[in-house]
């Protein structure tokens, strides 16, 4: 049996075990993978041109030809949801990756050096924390104009303190344990202590925070588009679509808002479920 076969068999076994024990996680994985596929191939999968108007009737309910129905300009909602996946997902990914890296670096630096460095870092953390993420994003829009780039970067900064606080507290706790003192006495280099021992200890917490952060970032960015400050119509961003569907909603055609809303909720739900479960596994492994 080759190594690949062995690994393949093991993966299959794990999947089988997980599927029987934890159908919720499997469902979450399916959603996350599905959304990822939509983000990459959405444009290609779309049955119609997402921006073309009057490809069908106006505000039609779902049918075989238009599975999600059409909007008030006769655009195909499925095509627009598919095309809107990438812009709706990339922003949150940038936010969590940037804020996790920055926050972890800041938190570890503060805990590692302590004293004045910790004091300054903590003050920076408090300061950013005091400005709500949405406010920072709106301020960015007022400065740089409408669009998703400025709010995305603003949120990336706004999310730093949450990660930094968590990592700082975790790192302080870890550094206080005798095994860190033992490594120090042994003469293990600082970089090795940091990257071989401290960082792995913090990864489960960081991962959990990253998944939670992804959900919040997605909601915040969609909210900014919903407010009309992010992606601009006729773009097929999910938040824009939800906002744009409001008149149709009151007129009795909920599809235009509901389908993108459903995808926002499903994506966030799936990522949250996955994050929570992986955290539990990691914690169990620790004990």
């Amino acid at each position: 049996m080759s190594v690949a076969q062995l690994a393949g068999g093991r993966v299959a076994a794990v999947v089988r075990k997980a599927a029987t024990r934890d159908p919720l996680v499997i469902a979450a994985v399916v959603v996350v993978v599905g959304v990822a596929v939509m983000a990459v191939f959405g444009q290609a999968l779309a049955p119609y041109d997402p921006d073309a108007i009057y490809v069908g009737p106006v505000s039609a309910p779902p049918s075989l030809a238009y599975p999600f129905g059409t909007d008030d300009l006769g655009r195909d909602i499925l095509s627009r949801v598919l095309a809107g996946t990438a812009p709706s997902v990339i922003g949150p990914v940038i936010v969590v990756v940037a804020s996790s890296l920055l926050g972890a670096a800041l938190g570890i630096t503060a805990a590692w050096f302590g004293g004045a460095v910790d004091g300054i870092a903590s003050r920076v953390i408090e300061l950013i924390f005091a400005i709500p993420g949405l406010v920072l994003a709106v301020l960015a829009v007022a400065m740089f104009g409408k669009g998703l780039l400025a709010p995305t970067l603003a949120l990336a900064i706004a999310y730093v303190p949450i990660v930094a606080r968590l990592i700082r507290a975790g790192a302080r706790q870890e550094l206080g344990k005798p095994y860190m003192a033992a490594l120090h006495i042994q003469g293990v280099g600082s970089a090795a202590i940091c990257f071989r021992h401290l960082v792995p200890a913090l990864l489960p917490a960081l991962f959990a925070q990253t998944t939670i952060g992804f959900g919040y970032a997605m909601l915040d960015l969609a909210a900014i588009s919903f407010l009309g400050l992010g992606a601009q119509p006729p773009a097929s961003d999910w938040g824009v679509m939800i906002a744009g569907g409001q008149p149709a909603l009151i007129a009795g055609a909920p599809e235009q808002s509901m389908f993108p809303a459903l995808f926002v909720v499903l994506t966030v739900l799936a990522v949250n479920v996955l994050g929570a479960r992986v955290t539990t596994w990691a914690e169990r492994g620790e004990r």
């Binding site: 344990k177 005798p178 095994y179 003192a181 033992a182 490594l183 120090h184 006495i185 042994q186 003469g187 293990v188 280099g189 600082s190 021992h197 792995p200 200890a201 620790e286």
Partner: peptide, 29 residues
Amino acid sequence: PARGARGRRRRARIAQMVFQDPYQSLDPR
């Protein structure tokens, strides 16, 4: 205290320490 990892390593070859809580004295990973 010794400055730098090299200094600590040199001292480590002379003096070592064992702590009270053996579980917390080991990296659980």
